[in-house]
Each structure stands twice: as structure tokens, then as C-alpha cells.
């Protein structure tokens, strides 16, 4: 019973809180640009408005185009069950859930890419191609990050790797942890198509990655896509926040407050990065990911050197 309630609560938290992060990012960017910016709740308005629209579909498309938003949304929602939110333990945890976690995102991405190819548009083919190429590279770095955490925590279950911090006193493993965090942050930017990888606000299809892939979706489908990408940011971000802030408090309310404050802080940081960095040229992105790879590798080497 408690399990069901906790699952439902997670569900609600994911669904409700995730668009807020996008709002915070937008507000931060507006602040840096010296503008007032859209209201914090703008992403919610967008999603609600899109949900009320009618569906328009291309004649070329098949059911895959219609199903992909739903499949990717369910996949990222399920991924949220595997990860601890701060001090809130994951309802499902087992030895090796990391791989399921990573591959659920793979499932979501595969269907989004197929949906883009389904339209037969050259632009969407391009977007699909870029998305899947860069995520293929970033997935490797993600696994390397997991490996460092496995080496440090001697465990192979997400909840113990990042949630249970008995292994991770900063004094003992500080340098590798810092490296993992930096490398993971870079991957977070890649996976969620933020600047410097991809500019969600750009208006030229040729330069987009994620946005150009979902050009043809509209109405409720596009709402699902927007929401799914917000949830993805939330889930991957909660990995980051949980790793960064070890919780000590025994009160549920304080824990929740710290966690959500952490998530908001992450959104602010992403907003700052987006404000101060220009986006990279497309052919520099592999170098960016390689940089993250080398950092994670360095972290692994330090962790191994410590272990002996």
C-alpha cells in the first residue's frame, strides 16, 4: 500500500514539478538578458493550451508517429521510479537497475527518432540523425560515470550508488566525485539539448537538434513531447542533485524542501550556463562529449588509484 502511494506521489511530483524547471531556466535567462521574460508558469500554460488543440497529422505518417510521444513519456516516467529523489528512496531498486534506467531513455529516444523519420521530411531526418548520434556518444560517457560510482560505492544499484552516501565522504573521494559531477553535468546538457549543445529557442531549423526532430508534432502529441522532455530533465537532474547534496534531515518536509530547492538551483545553474555560453558549432559537439569522457576517465583513474 505504502509502495503504491509512494509511486503515485512520485508520479505527481514528476508531472507537476518538471515544467517548473523549464520556467526557472527561462526566467534566469531573461534576467541575464535584462528582460522581464515569460512568467514562471509559462511551460504549464503551453502544455495546457497544446492539450486543448486538435490533432493534425501528415499523410505520410503511420501509427508510430502517433505512439512515439506516449511511449517516450511512459518510458521517462518509469525511469523516475528507479531513481532516489534526494532522501526519498526509489520504490523499485535492484542490483543492476542502472542499466534499465539508461536503456529506458534509449527506448524513448528510439521511438522519437522513428517518429521523426516517419514524416519523410528532410529536416526531421536531419534532426533525428543528430539526436541519435550525439546521444550514442553521450550514453558511453553516462556508462563511464556509472562505472566510477560503482567503483566508489561498490554497489550496482542506483539507490545505493547515489542515494546512500555512507561511502562518499567528500574527504575520501572528493576529486573523483567532482570529476563525475562535472562530467555528468556536461552529459545532462547534451541529453536535454541545452546550450552549448542545442538551443531550444533557436528559429532556424538547420541548426536545431531536438526541436527539428519534433517539427511535425502538434496538439496533444506535442504537449506530451514537451512534458516528456521536462520530465527527462527532472529525472536526470534529480540524479545530479541527489549525488551532490547528501541529506541528513529526518523530517520528510525538510527533505522535500531541500530536494526541490536543489532542483530549482540546478535549473538556475543551467540558465546561467545558457546565458554565458554561446552554442557550439555542430562539429564541435563530439569534442565536447569527448571532453566529458576524458573527465570521467580521469575520475575513474583517481578512484582506482585510491582503491589500492
Amino acid at each position: 500500500m505504502i509502495l503504491v502511494v509512494s509511486v503515485l506521489l512520485r508520479f505527481v511530483a514528476c508531472l507537476l514539478f518538471s515544467p517548473f524547471l523549464l520556467g526557472v531556466i527561462g526566467k534566469t535567462k531573461a534576467f541575464f538578458a535584462g528582460k522581464k521574460g515569460p512568467p514562471l508558469l509559462q511551460p504549464y500554460y503551453d502544455i495546457v493550451k497544446l492539450l486543448q488543440k486538435s490533432g493534425v497529422y501528415s499523410l505520410t505518417t503511420t501509427w508510430i508517429f502517433r505512439a512515439a510521444p506516449l511511449i517516450s513519456m511512459s518510458a521517462v516516467l518509469i525511469a523516475s521510479f528507479l531513481i532516489p529523489f534526494g532522501d526519498f528512496k526509489a520504490p523499485v531498486q535492484f542490483w543492476g537497475d542502472v542499466i534499465l534506467f539508461a536503456y529506458l531513455f534509449g527506448l524513448a529516444r528510439f521511438f522519437t527518432v522513428l517518429a521523426a523519420l516517419d514524416t519523410g521530411s528532410s529536416f526531421e531526418g536531419m534532426g533525428a540523425n543528430r539526436e541519435i548520434v550525439f546521444s550514442c556518444l553521450s550514453e558511453v560517457v553516462l556508462f563511464l560515470n556509472f562505472t566510477v560510482l560503482v567503483v566508489l560505492s561498490k554497489s550496482f544499484s542506483l539507490s545505493q550508488m547515489i542515494g546512500d552516501r555512507s561511502w562518499a565522504s567528500w574527504t575520501a573521494v572528493g576529486p573523483s566525485l567532482i570529476l563525475v559531477i562535472v562530467s555528468y553535468f556536461m552529459i545532462l546538457l547534451v541529453e536535454n539539448s541545452r546550450i552549448p549543445i542545442d538551443d531550444p529557442a533557436t528559429h532556424l531549423e538547420l541548426t536545431m537538434i531536438h526541436e527539428v526532430m519534433v517539427l511535425d508534432h502538434g496538439g496533444p502529441d506535442y504537449a506530451f513531447i514537451l512534458h516528456a522532455s521536462a520530465i527527462k530533465l527532472f529525472v536526470l537532474g534529480s540524479f545530479f542533485v541527489t549525488l551532490l547534496i547528501p541529506f541528513q534531515s529526518h523530517s520528510l518536509v525538510i527533505n522535500a524542501a531541500i530536494f526541490f530547492a536543489g532542483m530549482t538551483g540546478l535549473a538556475v545553474v543551467i540558465g546561467i550556463v545558457e546565458s554565458v555560453r554561446a552554442r557550439l558549432r555542430m562539429n564541435r559537439i563530439p569534442s565536447f562529449i569527448t571532453g566529458a569522457f576524458v573527465l570521467a576517465l580521469f575520475g575513474l583513474i583517481i578512484a582506482l588509484a585510491r582503491a589500492s
Binding site: T171, G174, P175, I178, L179, V294, F298
Partner: peptide
């Protein structure tokens, strides 16, 4: 720990220089 951190940052910066 601070020494380790500083050393790690020095190497990270060297990697950044490469990139």
C-alpha cells in the same frame, strides 16, 4: 583533501586547454 582537489582541478584545466 584540498590538495587533492587542487591537483584534480589543475589536471582538469589542462584537459580544458586541450579542448
Amino acid at each position: 583533501i584540498w590538495l587533492d582537489m587542487a591537483l584534480a582541478v589543475i589536471v582538469i584545466l589542462a584537459i580544458c586547454l586541450l579542448g
